[in-house]
Amino acid sequence: MSATESCRIPSLVKKYLMAISGLVLVLFIVGHMLGNLQFFIGPEVINAYAFHLHHLPGAPVSLWLIRSSLLGALVVHVWMAILLTKENRAARPEDYLGQKTRVATYAARTMPVTGVLILAFVVFHILQYTTRVVPVDYNQTIGQSAIEVGHVELEYFDVFAMMVSGFSSPLISFFYIVTMGLLCMHLSHGVASMFQSVGLRNESWRPKLKCAAAIFGWVIFLGFASIPASVLAGYGEPYLSAKETAWANAPVTPPPSSH
């Protein structure tokens, strides 16, 4: 037995780690989608939401705790995916000449591909809307707006304007919508698989969970994709141009708070 084989993580432990890290990421995605949908309630609401996220009780420690646990879950998920893909390819070195698939879904077979594409998206997404430096430096181009927090009026970075500005590029919006489609596929296999991996599935629950996972994937897709789609359709455009005029007339806005 080689050294790598002797310290191979037991196959079932890899399944559990995959399922649990996946669950953490799925819960995050649900929260993130519900938060983002406040985009449709109006600029004040989503700007105030952004303020609250950055000023959670105990911030910045609490914020970084949440971020690091999400990063931890992502690292475990990707690490297990790499191990699984590598070991599984080694375990089945050759394909059959007339390779046939009976029941494995397209989503299941493309998990590594959709995973890599979603990971690339996550990197871009964080650079665009968290650090706000890609494709333009939003910290420079987007100013502040008034929000009301606990009956106090204050000026805060205009997240709504940033989203409208970002998604008004058809290329970026298209990229977001396509990636959300891939995420929908990834989830339709992943969410149902999660239950199997920890042993919480049987013959009567399998079709129901599969259906529920597919619906879940579609809800996530529609929830997220509705934002770039609505911006492309013109939503928020008058607000952004009004704001841009206002910021151009008063360019001395202080730099936005770093957290």
Binding site: M1, E5, R8, P10, S11, K14, K15, L84, E87, N88, A90, A91, R92, T101, R102, V103, A104, A108, R109, M111, H189, A192, S193, Q196, S197
Partner: peptide, 13 residues
């Protein structure tokens, strides 16, 4: 695992 079998990814094949 030692025998060199791969890991299950819930394909159902």
């Amino acid at each position: 695992d030692k025998a060199g079998f791969g890991n299950c990814t819930n394909y159902g094949e």
